[in-house]
Nucleic acid binder design. Structure first.
Lengths: 207, 207
DNA sequence: CGTCATCCTGACCAATTGGTCAAACTCTTT
DNA sequence: AAAGAGTTTGACCAATTGGTCAGGATGACG
């Protein structure tokens, strides 16, 4: 709650803090906060536990550092929903951007999912604050598109939820997706992109 | 891995095992396997920890008992996808049934989500076995509808994934949904039902 | 080269946690 | 009411875990 990560001053600090954060992202995203241990993180970062605690004051501080670092970039795709663009195109582009994030940053997505599943103890204020504000703003934009007859008349909030759900699903439920589809790299992301494009283009096209 | 739950023989066993399972569902679904403690479960069940371990041999056994009990009912809505019904209606009904489950059984949904997020260590065989089999079977059914021109030509697996994602989202990300929408009971489920019905009816209608 | 700040470690600690056990209590049955 | 199965508990244990600390190693720099 107080300080999270020291601002790196030396080259060694730079290297070690980023090694720690990367290791912690790996461990936290796979095991959740309580499931992760400092020993696991230290080992993954190639450091001793006391040395790890030399850079971060506590397990909690590492977790908070990861989350605040993540939340910065998390809102970005939604923020880029452009009032000037073609409504249906904008929505489809948003879907595809989110799907890209699920492919490129699955650990971040799972870290977030874990936090929400656990009741969002550490980011509740973020959700009811900045996140809600941005969502409400973009919901008004989508609503105005609907009112103008430029997209189908749907509830904007549920549209946004469905986009989050369908795209993050490929990161958060990765094990399930891979278990059901024939194995093999990230190939299924192309199929997902094609399907979601179809679904939202059709679903959002004006009457 | 060996035995999970004793088959209840006496009235007391009946009462206590179900109290334990209910308490464990509450705790596991909110904290995940490693995050949950036997003390929490025992307290929630109104029993002492040793007494809890009189009914179940280990923490793991409780978790396994919960999962296998859940998986039974989990496949049910998909299983009821009817080859004889109208294709679009069947898909929409499936969506609404899954959404109902997210409202009625959110703890079960979160238990499942936790397990998958954690890499599905305990149900991996179930996913690549019975689950994959049923999904593949129903995917073939949906594919045949598409080939016959009775629904839009989409990848059936990704259609199913999107349905899982959009509906379970309301259980798994409940905190986020409530944090963004104005608070107030389960009212938003009606809005969700309306939106999803629109999205899938439009999205799946034949050309 | 010496000194000072930074960096690292082994040893240690208190709290938590999953699980055991012998003894005691209670309920049913004859 | 006595036996015996079934139920409950307090005391206890070993392992794990988050975190501390004094001191030693290693760098940067005049």
């Amino acid at each position: 709650m107080t300080d999270t990560a020291p601002a790196p001053r030396t080259r060694i600090q730079e290297k070690n803090t980023s090694a720690i954060l990367d290791a912690a992202l790996e461990v936290f995203s796979q095991a959740g906060f309580r499931g992760a241990t400092l020993d696991q993180i230290a080992k993954a970062a190639g450091l001793s536990k006391p040395n790890l605690l030399y850079y971060f004051p506590s397990k909690e501080a590492i977790h908070v550092a990861l989350l605040s670092q993540l939340l910065d970039s998390w809102l970005d795709p939604l923020r880029r929903l452009d009032p000037e663009g073609d409504p249906v195109d904008e929505i489809v582009r948003y879907v595809l951007r989110k799907l890209d994030m699920a492919r490129e940053l699955p650990r971040e997505s799972r870290l977030f999912a874990n936090e929400i599943l656990q009741g969002a103890p550490r980011i509740h204020d973020y959700i009811t604050g900045p996140l809600k504000d941005l969502v409400d703003e973009k919901a008004r934009l989508i609503q105005s598109w609907a009112t103008a007859g430029r997209i189908a008349p749907v509830d904007p909030h549920h549209l946004i939820f469905s986009i989050w759900a369908t795209t993050q699903h490929y990161a958060d439920f990765d094990v399930q997706v891979r278990g059901i589809l024939a194995p093999g790299g990230d190939a299924h992301f192309d199929g997902a992109a094609k399907f979601l494009q179809h679904l939202y283009r059709r679903g959002m096209a004006p009457d």
